Simulated assay, not measured.
Amino acid sequence: MLQLAPTPLPSPAAGRRPRPSSACICCSSVRALEEAKRVVLVRHGQSTWNAEGRIQGSSDASVLTPKGEAQAETCRQMLASDSFDACFTSPLARSRRTAEIIWQGRGRGRGDGLIPDPDLREIDLYSFQGLLKREGRERYGPLYRQWQKNAAEFSIDGHYPVQELWDRARSCWERILAHRGKSVLVVAHNAVNQALVATSLGLGAEHFRILLQSNCGASVLDFTPRAGGGPPTVCLNRLNQTPNSPVAGGSSAGRKTSKRIILACQGATQSSSESSPQPSPAWSWLAIGMKTGETNASLILVMYTVNCPLLWVPD
């Protein structure tokens, strides 16, 4: 079993707002689960502002493009065999429409069974929202560079957007895990889905942009109760699953990235088949790797496990 420990936090420098705690959401703030729960996170399809290269943030001025609608339909087909008891969704139009497409045939009518949650809106970027990215660079200069280079410490208009986002993600987990359903779909946005994955594994805001979510990419988290009560174990079963190869060339989540995490799942081997009558590839993580822009290698192996999912077991 691969166990992750919370990232230790440095002492805040004088005059600097301390980062929020990176403790796993499965701590004292979340009650123990009575039964196992699966949560599937999906990012919305391509929006008009995605296509324009405009900074969206929590603005609700963009809608799905025809490509975004097609991506949502592909995601619906990809998840067709999955059973969901409820669907939490961001109230923003681009996510709401994506959720409606994926949810087709599951409720009694359009939108039936969808649970809007305002904390699932995209990251609040205040004065940046609505600007083309080149306009942000030209108008804000050093401040925009800080957003690009050190997002966890970035502040604008008196706010720390990424730190606020991590707080919202923890709040969302309270409601998602309290839902009585055993399998819950969440349709939201790139940044907030990153924060949901990170906070479930006890990762702090410094991991922003490492867990990028592509348009209509799906990530799966499994929560399992612990014997005797206490916080559940958390298994990252899938990360940003899309119909495309995760090591293919091009950008990630609509932007260039110098580093990203890739989880590769191995198939059954002879030895694993002998020890497990029904091996499941989805539960057999082979590697966690980082793809970098400075190397021709598709995958740099940094961890190796056999027939073991990525698990977070809180203390």
Rank of each mutant, 00 (worst) to 15 (best):
A287W: 01
S90R: 14
G267L: 10
K256H: 10
K259I: 13
S95P: 03
L310S: 08
L41S: 06
C172M: 05
E35F: 08
G217T: 06
E274R: 15
R17T: 11
Q163N: 15
Q148L: 15
P281Y: 00
P161T: 13
R97D: 01
A253M: 03
P225A: 06
F154G: 00
I115Y: 00
Q146Y: 02
V186Y: 01
G228E: 10
W103P: 00
N50R: 00
G158W: 07
P246L: 05
F154R: 01
L286Y: 04
D119S: 10
L125P: 02
L311S: 11
R170K: 15
P279W: 00
G45D: 12
C27M: 14
C24K: 01
E34N: 12
G228F: 11
A218D: 03
H159A: 10
E135M: 01
H44S: 13
K182D: 09
C308P: 02
L41A: 07
A205E: 06
W283N: 12
R54T: 12
S81L: 14
M78C: 10
A51N: 09
A93N: 07
T295D: 07
P142V: 12
L41F: 12
T305D: 15
H179W: 09
D60P: 04
S271M: 09
C265K: 09
I156M: 02
L310D: 03
E73F: 04
A264Y: 00
